[in-house]
Design a binder for these strands. Structure first.
Length: 922
RNA sequence: GCCUUGGUGGUGGAAUUGGUAGACACGCAGGACUUAAAAUCCUGUGGGCAGCAAUGCCUGUACGGGUUCAAGUCCCGUCCGAGGCACCA
């Protein structure tokens, strides 16, 4: 039997072996510590898995395998986020049922994943589109529908308890997260009809129906994402899009804002990610204040929110968001036409476009005037896009001297600017800093800003025109989608009242329909299911969004086949929460907020035992594509090589990167690639065609999608795994480039040759030399700390260096080679298993215990620190741990040439320049 | 526009977290083995100047300032790229 490194055979052999022996199947085991490693599950798109997907999966797999070696019972599952828009759009175009497309795509993904040698426990697979799975998504929704949020207890409570409260005390003094409700007492409540009661309760439910504004495209009869709208037109088709109010299901995520913010402190997430969530939640302390507004002889109380109550003496106008409910009431007859025109214009812009165009100052005067409650002065009320209806109250008091947006607006429309801080210059720009001494400010004059803010709020409360208020930017999540391919709502309409189905009706399965597009009257596709009803009542026709199914999937993996509960308390009690979660930053403010919210809600209800779902989180960077170009001479079928292209007038054309190697075009493959290139001619340089290149997003249309299958076939899964890690830091975005892959492949071959020379196994019982042990222990030290820090690229380098050195030393000792194989096994498991078996071990390398091997062969750490010498003025020496700082200082003083000592665990650093010690770090 | 993040040779990247910049790898050039190719191995490789040479000197981490005995790393400002901004997932 020839013993070459034939990766294709080796990998097939071990993948089959793992599958047959269920090597990675895990069960709860109270005698072993658990560890839960989770990947963000993929959406199975039609383009298949590209090399960017496995990046995070490989990292988590390495970590999982490493943790198993360390003795942990590791839960490492995988599944599919299977509901989504692409399958539905494909269905609209082709009539192919989304379930079928999704099924096919999943099968393809699974096949591709299997080739990479992941250690998933596939028996726990979940799919969000499976009724047995989405039963629990619907169940969670029903729980949210039947609970309200008690802001005093900071906890969700059953709606039935709220009804009792209303029946005994009304809502007076009740602290709850809710929409706008009038204050009422018990008698009032008792006098209401059922319908009136349910409309009040709706204001308190955690899952509730409410008005929101959406991008509505009348021509397509559908709601569009901001992404699908460009300059007021739909990306598909170019039809006009407008902002429209619609009743939609929403989740009262804002109720949890404070907890979502506060509990970030308990998580091992990167600071940047925490910052993103903090900013997204956007807590700001300030005050709500009422301004009286006069439109002709009618008087209204308009509420505004401000974080700068101290600047109220500088308010020179007021601004409403175009969508504000006040707009209609506060527009005078004379201004009606201008306002109408402005609103029409603004309706055409999405929220994002409005935010991006802050340099374009726009606005219109309503014709009414507000009274500044402190100065009694009359100030004009304007409408402008820079005020957002979704934040605060949708109305602001403008202080142009101290807010840059207000300043720009005031300058543009020639409104007065009153400076309120001593010595500030507002002739060129506003003074936004919250510091300085107040002036022109009545009773606040002379105070520091930081004192003036609370003083102003106290005065506002005293005058009864407002109160202190903490405001959050975080908005409630819109939970309805006007789509087919999503979870149906277990809600029916009884005499127009939204009513929950009982749990026994779950799962409420998606009905079959003949077409997947919206109806002619603009209703969601489910409205086509005319005979779909619950006890004769119509069922909600919108479906749930993508994040519904992905919000609690990590819980389902703990107990995927349970038909009685989302997860049993025993299994949840064992696995608890995710110890390590790996995925892209693009989910920072979407999925990762919703999931935390969902988990906290279930925690309040006692269904899960941990307050947070993901203890530690690592973001892998995006893998971008490296596109290649060929240059066609205009109006010909002749292609000119990259360095000669400037001599001709050429067009740059994307070429499939899979037929380009090291920027050299495979000319034959190119001719066969597309029919139009069959007879292509080439102008070569040095006999080769050199392609141009660029870094772009990996996508089908740019022909730069690199399929991992191809890499697996030509180099093997172990090479792919190592190479993806070697490419650069996990957390950094980087382009995919196959150019360097030969290097890691060579490394594996070299690794193999350490064990085999032809058929001959070189491993011996000989005692290792000191030099060999030094190499091994430098490596163990480096790789173990690198894995914990997710610095996989440097650990691959460390392997390469170690193997080069051991090759030079002609190492054969099993005492070196065994731990070497164990250490490599998380990275390149197939080759490791093969060599482990060759060394005569019965069981899989996965059963070896890494710490035991480290322990067994540990030598003194005098190897740990390199000694180098620079003849001129500094040198590094090794310091034994036993040395005290004082002793080191003595040593330093005794040695006149010393420049720098780098030390051990006790003495971190002593930095010395000629003649004086300047820094001693302990 | 706002939030987050990055910018180091021809290329991907490393740098003990403020201490000899360019580890490791690709590519390229030269060499060994071979009838030849593949595979493998060895040497060189940021730029510039000087030298037959070992080597020496200067310069260099997007740009402009600053702090420091010492800056790729810290601070201020500028430019460029990436991800997100609530119905893509």
């Amino acid at each position: 039997m020839a013993k070459d490194y034939i990766f294709s055979e080796i990998e097939k052999k071990w993948q089959n072996n793992w599958a047959q022996n269920n090597t990675f199947k895990v069960e709860e085991d109270p005698h072993r510590p658990k560890f839960y490693v989770l990947d963000m599950f993929p959406y199975p798109s039609g383009a298949g898995l590209h090399v960017g997907h496995p990046l995070g999966y490989i990292a988590s797999d390495i970590y999982s395998r490493y943790k198993r070696l360390c003795g942990f019972n590791v839960l490492h599952p995988m599944g599919f986020d299977a509901f989504g828009l692409p399958a539905e759009q494909y269905a609209i175009q082709t009539g192919q049922h989304p379930a079928k497309t999704t099924e096919d795509n999943i099968a393809r993904y699974r096949k591709q994943l299997d080739k990479i040698g992941f250690s998933y426990d596939w028996s726990r697979q979940v799919r969000t589109c499976d009724p047995q799975y989405y039963k629990w998504t619907q169940w969670a929704f029903l729980q949210m529908f039947s609970h309200w949020y008690d802001s005093a207890l900071q906890k969700a409570r059953p709606i039935s308890e709220l009804e009792e409260i209303f029946a005994t005390a009304g809502n007076i003094g009740l602290q709850a997260a809710c929409g706008s409700v009038i204050e009422f007492d018990a008698d009032y409540w008792k006098g209401l009809s059922d319908e009136q009661k349910s409309s009040i309760l709706m204001q308190y439910r955690i899952a509730y129906l409410g008005d929101t504004s959406v991008n509505w495209c009348p021509a397509l009869g559908t709601v569009l994402a901001n992404d699908e709208v460009k300059e007021g037109l739909s990306v598909r088709g170019g039809f006009p899009v407008e902002q429209k109010k619609m009743k939609q299901w929403q989740l009262r995520v804002s109720a949890y804002a404070e907890r979502l913010l506060k509990d970030l402190d308990t998580l091992e997430w990167s600071d940047s990610l925490k910052d993103m969530q903090k900013n997204w939640i956007g807590r700001s302390e300030g005050a709500e204040m009422i301004f009286k507004v006069l439109n002709g002889d009618k008087e209204y109380d308009v509420k505004i929110f401000t974080t700068r109550a101290d600047t109220v003496f500088g308010v020179t106008f007021m601004v409403l968001a175009p969508e504000s409910e006040w707009v209609e009431k506060l527009t005078s007859e004379e201004c009606a036409d201008a306002v109408k025109e402005y609103l029409t214009m603004s309706k055409k812009k999405t929220e994002r476009e409005r935010m991006a165009q802050t340099h374009n100052v726009t606005g219109v005067f309503t014709g009414s005037y507000a009274i500044n409650p402190f100065t009694g002065e009359k100030i004009p009320v304007w409408i402008s896009e820079y005020v957002l209806s979704g934040y605060g109250t949708g109305a602001i008091m403008a202080v142009p001297a101290h807010d840059s947006r207000d300043y720009a607006f005031a300058r543009h429309f020639n409104l007065p600017i009153i400076p309120l801080i001593e010595g500030c210059d507002v002739s060129q720009e506003s003074f936004d800093a919250k510091e300085g001494i107040m002036c022109n400010s009545g009773f606040l004059t002379g105070m520091q800003v930081k004192d003036a803010i609370p003083a102003a709020i106290a005065k506002v409360e005293e005058l009864g025109i407002g109160k202190r208020k903490v405001n959050y930017r975080l908005r409630d999540a819109i939970f309805s989608r006007q789509r087919y391919w999503g979870e149906p709502f277990p809600i029916y309409y009884k005499d127009g009242v939204a009513t929950a189905m009982p749990e026994s009706a779950l799962p409420l399965e998606l009905p079959e329909i003949d077409q997947f597009k919206p109806t002619e009257s603009g209703e969601p596709p489910l409205a086509r299911a005319t005979s779909w009803n619950y006890e004769g009542y119509p069922i909600e026709t919108s479906t749930m969004p993508g994040f519904a199914g992905s919000s609690a999937y990590y819980l389902r993996y703990m107990d995927p086949h349970n038909t009685k509960a989302l997860v049993s308390s025993e299994k949840n009690g064992y696995w608890r929460s995710v110890d390590l979660y790996i995925g892209g930053t693009e989910h920072a403010t979407g999925h990762l907020i919703y999931s935390r919210f969902w988990n906290k809600f279930l925690y309040d209800l006692g269904y899960v035992c941990e307050n947070e779902p993901f203890k530690r989180l690592v973001n892998q960077g995006m893998i971008q594509g490296r596109s290649n170009f060929v240059y066609r001479i205009v109006n010909t079928n002749t292609f000119v090589s990259y360095n000669l292209k400037d001599q001709y007038k050429t067009t740059e054309i994307h070429v499939d990167v899979n037929i380009v190697h090291n920027d050299r075009l495979d000319i034959e493959a190119f001719r066969n690639w597309l029919p139009e290139y069959q007879n292509a001619e080439f102008i070569l340089e040095d006999g080769e065609y050199i392609c141009g290149w660029a870094i772009e997003k990996m996508s089908k249309s740019m022909f730069n999608v690199v399929n991992p299958d191809y890499v697996c076939e030509s180099y093997g899964a172990d090479t792919l795994r190592l190479y993806e890690m070697f490419l650069g830091p996990l957390e950094q975005s980087k382009p995919w480039d196959t150019k360097g892959i030969d290097g890691v492949h060579r490394f594996l071959k070299k690794f193999w040759r350490l064990f085999y020379k032809g058929d001959e196994l070189l491993v011996s019982d000989s005692e290792p030399s000191k030099a060999e042990l030094k190499v091994l222990h430098t490596l163990i030290r480096k790789v173990s700390s690198d894995i914990e820090n997710f610095s996989f690229n440097t650990s691959v380098s460390a392997f390469m260096i170690a193997i080069n050195e051991l090759s030079d030393l002609k190492t054969t000792s099993s005492q070196i080679l065994e731990p070497l194989v164990i250490m490599l096994s998380p990275f390149a498991p197939h080759i490791a298993e093969e060599l482990w078996e060759a060394m005569g071990h019965d069981s899989s390398v996965m059963n070896a215990r890494f710490p035991e091997y480290v322990e067994k062969y540990t030598v003194e750490d005098s190897f740990d620190y390199p000694v180098s010498f620079n003849g001129k003025m500094r040198f590094k020496i090794t310091l034994p741990k036993s040395l005290s700082v004082k002793e080191v200082e003595e040593a330093v003083k005794a040695d006149p040439n010393t420049a720098r000592y780098v030390g051990s665990a006790t003495i971190k650093k002593i930095i010395v320049v000629p003649s004086k010690i300047i820094n001693v770090v302990i």
